[in-house]
Design a protein around this nucleic acid. Structure first.
Lengths: 353, 353
DNA sequence: TAAATTAATGCAAACGTTTGCAATAATCCA
DNA sequence: TGGATTATTGCAAACGTTTGCATTAATTTA
């Protein structure tokens, strides 16, 4: 029965008594082909329901018109937002995007890098695992001059194009803000230090403390994977013994939200007893009560820069370009109730008009 | 300089003085190849840094080991969760996933279907646009026996594999719940009726009203794209004139959350003055105050069924299988504060242990 | 009108695999 | 020990495109 249903350019060629090369060129609007021929070819192509085979073209051209993306997980606000932007932007350039999630597993990340290479993606965009410290699985891309861009969670000491947030500044601004609101004992809940993101924020936190004349105590930083469960446990640790901190800078919003819930449950008033600042400006920070101050990372800008750099790399003179460069996207503190001064109720920015 | 850096199986063959066929078979663990040869081949492959070219293999085999996914947007909770599950599950089966978002634009959906076909995906999974009523852009897949599975937002009158939530029941359960809690005047904020999802929920809503002996009024249903902005406007309409409803069934959680915000701003007490039920059990419903009752759609189950059906289609005797079948995933009402009875405070389900 | 130029089309190889079939090498059995 | 069986390996075509170069057709020029 239906053995060979797929139409190819040779079917078109036969039908029109043309050579396949002419058909191919006609479909690609090659200047050497007469207008009449192009028209005839396209008409028959439509009639036969011809669909180009991207695999064949990709094999021949050595390019797949496909970009790979590896992120920890697409269900988290920040990577999800960026993925969306990257996807939509790439579409404009005629590129497909293969979105993959490493689930924060190093092994999966390695496996994904390999399959994406095998798929001969024309470029790779990565935000690494929390635990990736060896980046050699990306060597294939570097060595074969396949555009490689890292964002947000970027490598240390690995020469590639990097687009990251200003995490040092983020940590600094958040901490300074808490201090200015009167906090004297500021706890920081950080992610694992293997991830440069967090070490930068910690550095900003320390710098701010010093500048504010507040003592830095090692015991006032907690390092953990920033999940809901861990946040809750850490709260139990923090509020398990006196003295309680009067400010908490959480390195992500899930943690900040969980702190709010913990405080509510245990009768701690936010911001009166303890002030809180989160990170990423996840929309959830706005709907929780009290709403949470957070550091906005301009995901839109970051996503657009990622695509821009990638396209430059793909189209540009790749040998000329420096293989390494670092671009820093600014951050901005969004003040909400959770860190409002004791006197005022704090201004609530409503996104609705 | 670095002209031809990519190693192929012919490089391996040359190095070992073997034929390419032997090398190919060795790499694929073909039984006819001696253990010794396999070992030698694999060793040299590793040494040379050989990476299989999936494009070439795909072209030859007429299969790409890649699945396409089209969803409205991956930044929404429900599609995001399902995408994650599908991705991770497919990975186990050795399939790649190309995630694409239509941004709820029919034109984009059509374009995506075409490119994914060109990419020769081995299967396509779709949750359609709100406005897709013509499904002919998927004909190529049907006609060429490429597994095609729809979920959540599924077509009407288009013979394919369908996995959907029990939206009729969802509408019914939500409405009945509100009625049982004492609501006499229940407004329903629905999505556009072009999407079967919403028409089913509306049907459930009507059925419940009737069963509860409550009158159905056309003016008590609002049809709109379920965005934050629209929700706010609709609130202004609803509470712009008396009588106020005492219950609102919102067809998604973004809407439900916005209603809460509106009520808070305007001094309406939830659940005392008006009770609210949302849809999808978005995690945000849990962190907002008051927390929002919602209909859980078991995204995990749905995602797993999607992949299961897809794999059956890919591996199974596809001619035997009926091309059409519909599977319905159950729903469950999660009761929270927003619909608690006047006397009780309502039980709050905390996910934390 | 013939030679020269330009426009349009065709030939055939190449991209890197896989696989049916043929061929060879190794092993077995009587 | 020789024929038969089995275990390995190789040949060559095929998958559907694209493209450099050669060829033919159409047009221009002298």
């Amino acid at each position: 029965m239906s053995k060979r249903t797929e139409k190819t350019i040779v079917d078109i060629a036969e039908e029109l008594q043309l050579s396949v090369s002419t058909v191919s060129r006609a479909l690609n609007d090659h200047p050497n082909i007469s207008a009449r021929t192009k028209e005839r070819v396209k008409k028959v192509a439509k009639k036969l329901g011809y669909r180009p085979n991207a695999l064949a073209a990709g094999l021949r051209n050595n390019k797949s018109k496909t970009i790979g993306l590896i992120v920890p997980r697409i269900s988290m606000f920040f990577p999800a937002t960026i993925s969306t932007i990257i996807q939509n932007k790439l579409q404009e350039f005629g590129y497909n995007l293969i979105i993959c999630q490493s689930n924060d597993s190093y092994e999966q990340e390695v496996a994904l890098a390999n399959t994406l290479y095998s798929a001969r993606v024309d470029g790779l965009v990565v935000s690494t695992t929390l635990y990736t410290t060896d980046f050699s699985h990306f060597d294939v891309f570097r060595n074969n001059n396949i555009p490689l861009v890292f964002f947000d969670r970027v490598p240390k000491d690995y020469n590639v194009k990097v687009i990251k947030g200003d995490d040092y500044r983020g940590g600094y601004v958040a901490t300074t803000h808490l201090a200015e609101k009167g906090c004297k004992d500021i706890v920081h809940i950080s992610g694992p230090l293997t991830c440069c993101l967090y070490s930068d924020r910690v550095a900003g936190y320390k710098a701010a403390l010093q500048e504010q004349g507040l003592p830095f105590k090692k015991s006032r930083i907690f390092y953990q994977e920033l999940t809901r469960e861990n946040a809750w446990q850490t709260c139990e640790k923090i509020f398990g013994q006196q003295p309680y901190p009067d400010g908490i800078f959480a390195a992500n919003d899930t943690t900040a939200i969980t702190i709010i819930e913990y405080c509510r449950k245990h009768g701690l008033r936010v911001p009166e007893d303890v002030k809180i600042v989160g990170y990423s400006n996840d929309p959830r920070t706005e709907i929780v009560t009290p709403s949470i101050s957070s550091i906005d990372q301009y995901p839109g800008m970051m996503g657009e820069r990622v695509v821009a750099v990638l396209m430059e790399l793909i189209n540009g003179r790749q040998s000329a370009e420096p293989r390494y460069s670092q671009e820093i996207i600014p951050i901005q503190l969004i003040e909400r109730q959770s860190s409002a001064g004791k006197s005022k109720t704090g201004k609530k920015k409503l996104t609705l008009s």
